[in-house]
Design a binder for these strands. Structure first.
Lengths: 184, 184
DNA sequence: GCCCGCATGTAACTGGTTACATGATTGT
DNA sequence: ACAATCATGTAACCAGTTACATGCGGGC
């Protein structure tokens, strides 16, 4: 019972919104939680199997739909509460961009500026994506009571994207190559 | 030759600053790159073995020192340049905090506010840590030519920490519980 | 009749952490 | 002498991705 899996938390979580198939779970995670979470099929199906075996979810043989959706049981909802209350464990940081910039002397100033430009454009694109997601959530009346929480995560993304954008722009201004005598 | 390992990039990188033992490499990664990178012994030593076998680093039997330091060879420096030029692959996002907040309806408003307070305090502490690192780098005259790149990574950390801080504070103001009738 | 998208699953592999085992050096 | 720290490594395990295998249902 004690084995706390992040994947099971995510799966139980999306099923708490509404019952769906494993395939739909993966789509929901990709499209809705995609800014801060990811799961692959190879994780989801075994997780669903374990959850069903321990009675936390059950199959609903829906009559008209092609396949059977999974639904949260009562004990599943309790278990979800338990998992949500566990302190969020953050993965050890691994930022490939900063790693490369840190060794910028070896990489050369121009290549660093390329990396910064990519990061800037990426942050810009992310900001636009967040605006779209925000509009979608605001328009979705079916989940009005979940809206403030969903928007919380979008706002978080916007803040960090904007921070990255500003950092990249400031760094592009600061990091000028006086005279390219670096290797490469 | 093609197997591109992030660990080998990190190891070659720190050895490009100065030769050191495997133990010191781990300390350098923890203390200096800690804000954006991490490696464990279980990765570092095998990586050093592979790097030595392929002639990218060599042992320097230093006379007075207790143990032999590893130093970058010429081909090692070339390989480092190659790896640095590979596009930084970012790991799929997995933010346990946002995952929990997203399911905030199940978790309850008060628990969400606790999470936000923790995030705020954490960001605050990180900002203070960055200030210390910044001072240390600025004072370190031995690596003056690497300073602008190292500061770049510190500035990145400061920007995101400040963004998180502001997001958490704004969210604490926005997310008020009108009347706690949520489960838990 | 055929292809595409839905749907479920498994097997192999990779990258990484943790814990353990061991010993040398140094300071007290 | 003894403890703490430096130093090197290995074995077991875990989480997660990728690629593969399979089949059903609907639209063209």
């Amino acid at each position: 019972m004690a084995r706390s899996s992040q994947t099971e938390l995510a799966v139980l979580g999306v099923l708490s919104v509404e019952p769906m198939t494993g395939y739909a779970i993966r789509e929901a995670i990709r499209d809705v939680l995609g800014h801060f979470w990811s799961e692959s099929f190879g994780q989801i199906y075994p997780a669903l199997g374990r959850l069903e075996a321990s009675g936390l979810v059950r199959r609903e043989g829906s009559s008209r739909a092609r396949a059977s959706a999974f639904a949260l049981t009562e004990s599943g909802r309790l278990r979800l509460g338990e998992l949500l209350r566990e302190p969020p464990q953050q993965a050890p940081p691994r930022n490939g961009l900063l790693l490369r910039l840190f060794f910028g002397r070896e990489l050369g100033v121009e290549a660093c500026r390329d990396l910064l430009r990519d990061a800037r454009d990426d942050a810009q694109r992310r900001l636009e994506a967040y605006a779209a997601v925000r509009a979608e959530i605001t328009a979705d009346d079916a989940h009005a009571d979940e809206r403030p929480f969903w928007l919380l995560t979008v706002t978080a993304g916007e803040h960090t994207a904007r921070a990255t954008l500003e950092w990249a722009e400031a760094s592009l201004t600061a990091l000028v190559d006086p005279d390219d005598r670096n290797p490469g």
